[in-house]
Computed example of a mutant assay.
Amino acid sequence: MTDDPIHSSDPLSRQLHAEMLDSLDEELEMELDDQRLEALIAGTAAARQTGSDLDRRIYFRELLRLQGELVKLQDWVQHRKLKLVVLFEGRDAAGKGGVIKRITQRLNPRICRVAALPAPSERERSQWYFQRYVSHLPAGGEIVLFDRSWYNRAGVEKVMGFCTDAEYEEFFRSVTEFERMLVRSGIILVKYWFSITDDEQQKRFLMRIHDPLKQWKLSPMDMESRRRWEHYTRAKEIMLERSHIAEAPWWIVEAVDKKRARLNCIHHLLGQVPYGEVDRPAIALPERVYHPDYLRAPQAKEIFVPAAY
């Protein structure tokens, strides 16, 4: 086998290399602004081989443009005191977290926050099922992104046997009324299901197994979900059929290609809330005030972080 992962005949080596490049892309997205981007990626032909046929320059350009529109949407939500809730559902490794990261990347965390609830406590299990989610709903001028949501009951809880058949049926009797109530209260509710293939989930799980930086994403529950692929498929089909309502329809994001999924989801989300520019007064930096008697106090060298780089 060749030592060059790009030309290796081993599919896993090539996939690992593509995943490493995708991680590099994520870092670029987090660190680079539009002016530095072109100079840094110019001429790096190998770095463009990420497994997607979407050119990286087009991807970055569109991502930054869409993120600029997300900032406008955020300003509009805050200005008009809107309440926006977005649910992200899908199989393990479907790419929900990657899209959420790109949405929040340039937004104000005081306005747009992520709700990723852990397994319910013993006390929460005795509450009304939706109760622990209600406390995370937005006030006026806020956006909440649910990284998994109350649909846990229709998915993982059903497949893994964490709820009874009676609780499962009660969920479907309640969820549509619950969501209609949210919409009547003025909440804009958008629901996404991220769809990947059997083979793609297999590949992404293998990537996590072989990548020390991503092994933490795997849990025994993830491993079991892989074994029960068909059970999850059936649960998903029932969920979409029984909870797709006019007031809060489901939207399916084809997510095998991560980059296209991110762009398509953000583009679609922007279309769900009519928004416009918010007029703001011009910002003028005030003059720095100097006091002739001000002396800066010395700092002990031992409290500074060592300059390792």
Rank of each mutant, 00 (worst) to 15 (best):
M1I: 09
I6E: 15
D10R: 00
S13Y: 04
H17D: 13
A18Q: 15
M20C: 00
E26K: 05
E31H: 06
T44E: 11
D55N: 02
I58W: 02
F60D: 00
F60I: 06
F60E: 06
R61F: 07
R65P: 00
L73N: 03
W76H: 13
W76R: 02
Q78A: 15
L82I: 07
V85K: 07
R91S: 10
D92Q: 09
A93E: 01
A94N: 08
R102Q: 10
I103H: 03
Q105E: 06
R106I: 03
R110N: 11
R110C: 04
A116S: 15
R123M: 07
V134C: 06
A139L: 09
G141P: 08
R148N: 02
N152A: 14
R153D: 03
M160V: 04
E167Y: 07
F172T: 02
T176I: 09
E177D: 15
F178A: 14
V183T: 13
V183N: 10
S185K: 15
I187S: 00
I188S: 13
W193P: 01
T197V: 12
Q202S: 11
K203I: 14
R208F: 01
I209V: 14
D211K: 01
P220C: 01
M221V: 14
R227Q: 14
T233W: 07
T233P: 05
K236L: 11
R242S: 11
I245R: 11
A248M: 02
I252C: 03
V253L: 05
R260Q: 07
R262G: 07
L263N: 03
N264S: 10
H267K: 14
L270E: 03
Q272I: 01
P274Y: 05
G276P: 04
E277G: 04
V278A: 11
R280E: 15
V289P: 05
V289Q: 13
V289W: 02
L295M: 10
L295V: 15
K301I: 10
F304C: 07
A308L: 13
